[in-house]
Simulated scan of single mutants.
Amino acid sequence: MPKQPAIPGLRDAMKKKVTRRERFLAEMDAVVPWDQLLALLEPHYPKAGPRGGRPPMPLETMLRVYFLQNWYALSDPMAEETLYDSEAMRRFAGIELGDDRIPDETTILNFRHLLERHGLTEAIFAEVSIHLADKGITLRSGTLVDATIIDAPSSTKNKARARDPEMSSTRKGNDWYFGMKAHVGVDAHSGVVHSLETSTGSVHDSRVWDELLHGEETSVWADRGYVSAEREAAFTGRGKVWGVMRKAPRGGRLHPADEDINRIIAMVRAKVEHPFRVVKRQFGYMKTRYRGLAKNRAQLFTLFALGNLFLVRRKLLA
């Protein structure tokens, strides 16, 4: 005979171990600037249901569910399913099973479309950047510039029987990739992303430069792909550091002094990989989820905003 299930609240109170998921959600709950973000979204959120129907879900609940989607790489149907399955996620979203409505996949989809339609994910990224600057996290003295490839499905086994026309192929080393690129400008002090741009995969990294600088840099750091005599000449001056890795002349070898400089630059540049690691490994964003650049671009702004908060959460909590 199966055991009588315990009351959920009592069962949770009796639990002795705090899981990794609960710890992560508690930390992120504490560092996300909820008041600022809700004030940002509230003017665009519907105040009443369509044609006098059910009232919309609370805005904060939908924002929290949307963040859960991005942290755990959940599709709209899986986000709904997971809310039924996970007590920790329901608690984070402020949903009490049996008392509150759980948003269905269509409601979750509509909220994401609302954010995309009004450009609100870029606004979320900007608001988080302002929040971190107010906390003294970013110093805006130096910028690390880099790009990462986001793979897209190359299969034609879909409804359109074609690959995504807005994605393209690019080569890195001896390997070919199909997808898009995320270009970032990273604060050299804190390691958080302050600028983000996206492109199709075939766009060379060096073509996206000015969009990634905030204009107050005393130093810039990048790999060999960004070598430019014109940019270097424009940046030189008193107190300026041009930290772009030296490139050997065609058919020649790099001078030993330049090799030493490159080792120093590489040590400084290492911090630029941290946001990519968080988005791809911690949040599981290994492939594009949607067709077209616009929807994936919108998601990337959210992912890097949340990634910034994750990177500096210990400083914010302290």
Rank of each mutant, 00 (worst) to 15 (best):
M1Y: 09
M1D: 09
K3R: 15
I7G: 08
G9T: 15
G9Y: 14
A13E: 14
A13N: 12
K15I: 15
K16H: 13
R20W: 14
R20K: 14
R23E: 13
F24N: 07
D35F: 13
Q36N: 11
Q36E: 13
L40D: 10
H44R: 14
A48C: 14
A48M: 14
G49N: 10
G49R: 10
R51Q: 14
G52K: 14
G53D: 11
G53Y: 14
P56T: 12
Y66W: 12
F67R: 06
Q69D: 12
L74V: 11
E81H: 14
E81G: 11
T82V: 13
R90T: 10
R91F: 09
F92V: 12
A93T: 08
A93V: 08
L97E: 12
I102K: 07
P103C: 09
T106M: 13
E116G: 07
E116R: 06
E116P: 00
G119N: 09
T121E: 00
F125S: 00
E127T: 07
E127K: 03
I130P: 00
H131P: 00
D134C: 05
I137F: 01
T138S: 04
L144V: 06
L144K: 02
I150T: 02
I150C: 06
N158Y: 06
K159Q: 10
M167D: 06
S168P: 06
S169R: 15
R171S: 15
Y177M: 10
M180L: 15
S195A: 13
L196V: 10
S199L: 08
S202A: 13
S206H: 10
R207F: 08
W209E: 00
E211W: 04
T218Q: 11
W221T: 04
A222K: 05
S228A: 06
E232P: 01
A233Y: 00
A234D: 05
K240G: 00
K240V: 05
W242C: 00
V244M: 03
R246P: 01
R246W: 01
H255Q: 04
A257K: 07
D258P: 02
E259W: 05
I261F: 01
A266P: 03
K271S: 07
P275L: 05
R281C: 13
G284W: 08
T288F: 03
L300R: 02
F301C: 06
T302M: 06
L303M: 09
F304C: 01
A305S: 03
A305T: 04
V312E: 03
R314Q: 11
K315M: 11
L316H: 00
